[in-house]
Design a protein around this nucleic acid. Structure first.
Lengths: 165, 165
DNA sequence: CAGAGATACTTGACAATTAAAATATATAGG
DNA sequence: CCTATATATTTTAATTGTCAAGTATCTCTG
């Protein structure tokens, strides 16, 4: 038998534990997001017959009275431009948004809510907010604030480390 | 083109005071997950020419020496059964996994890593772990533990409230 | 044991998504 | 002004994902 080694304080073991800690945290973060996203997606489908990405796009436009350029939508929704093209096509076909020429840049298009789009979105948004509140009801106000801070740190660091790959 | 990663104008910075704290928290959670997921997906693609769902499926199998049934994979990956069928088809065609009959249930199939699948996964996993550690490096050990606890609460409540819709 | 209902998986149709190439327009430097 | 390079959007192909329907098998109850 070999000499006993206290594995709880040896550098490499602690490094490994740190590794596992980050991985575990990442998996848990992913699980939470998936649970909530699935719940909201299913409710949007059964309650309004629409999808989460369409709702998201409408939500982006709702506070932009002059509309947003395709590229702005793409950045805010954190999806590729091609994806925004497809979702916008669908919403345009449903009469919920319109594409308008941008007066300052002939390459660009401005997407705006139609009156019908705005009406529908407002109806959906108020239910959506209730669902989210319910999904987060397991956390007290103090803990919500703390969770928000911690995620803020994570976001800041991850965004930064994404820009220097 | 790759998905834009720009924290200056993302989903969550638009949350105004009018938004309930839960809504803001949800958008921040989603932003964090998207940032990290995009980073990992892009690296798996450029470093190994593979995709995140394939990596995930291999990861599930890695700690299951006897393989997993399709349904177990579906539950663990939190995706539908049809999706698992497709990803498994692809990995099987690449020679990384095999489908075997389950000895106890003739309806079921057991998916196992091949030797080649195990070898490739281990190569990818060690890099993957480094990426995750780097992405979470902005949070101290104490805060990681706290974040894990808070997400644990959220997970528990959201899972429960998902089961009583 | 028969039949009803549950469970395991696959298939098919379609939406969402990415990456990469193509097109059109802007902008900056000489 | 010309040209090179960058930016804005769309298009294309391939992958991932859902949902619902279909098939095969299992389990339970009478």
């Amino acid at each position: 038998m070999t000499a006993a080694v206290d594995s709880s304080s040896d550098l490499e073991t602690r490094a490994t534990e740190a590794h596992h800690e980050s991985l575990r945290l990442w998996l848990r973060l992913l699980t939470c997001t998936n649970l909530i996203e699935t719940s909201i997606r299913q409710r949007l489908q059964s309650r309004f017959g629409t999808t989460l990405p369409r709702f998201d796009l409408l939500a982006q436009l709702e506070r932009a009275p002059d509309g947003l350029k395709m590229g702005e939508l793409s950045r805010r929704m954190m999806v590729t431009g091609g994806n925004v093209t497809g979702i916008t096509d669908a919403l345009e076909a449903e009469g919920l948004v319109t594409r308008l020429a941008d007066s300052a840049d002939r390459r660009a298009l401005r997407v705006k809510l139609t009156a019908e789009g705005r009406r529908l979105f407002q109806r959906m948004a108020s239910e959506h907010e209730k669902w989210v509140i319910e999904l987060f009801a397991g956390i007290g106000a103090r803990d919500k604030a703390r969770l928000g801070e911690l995620l803020g740190q994570l976001k800041q660091h991850a965004a930064q480390s994404n820009n220097q790959p």
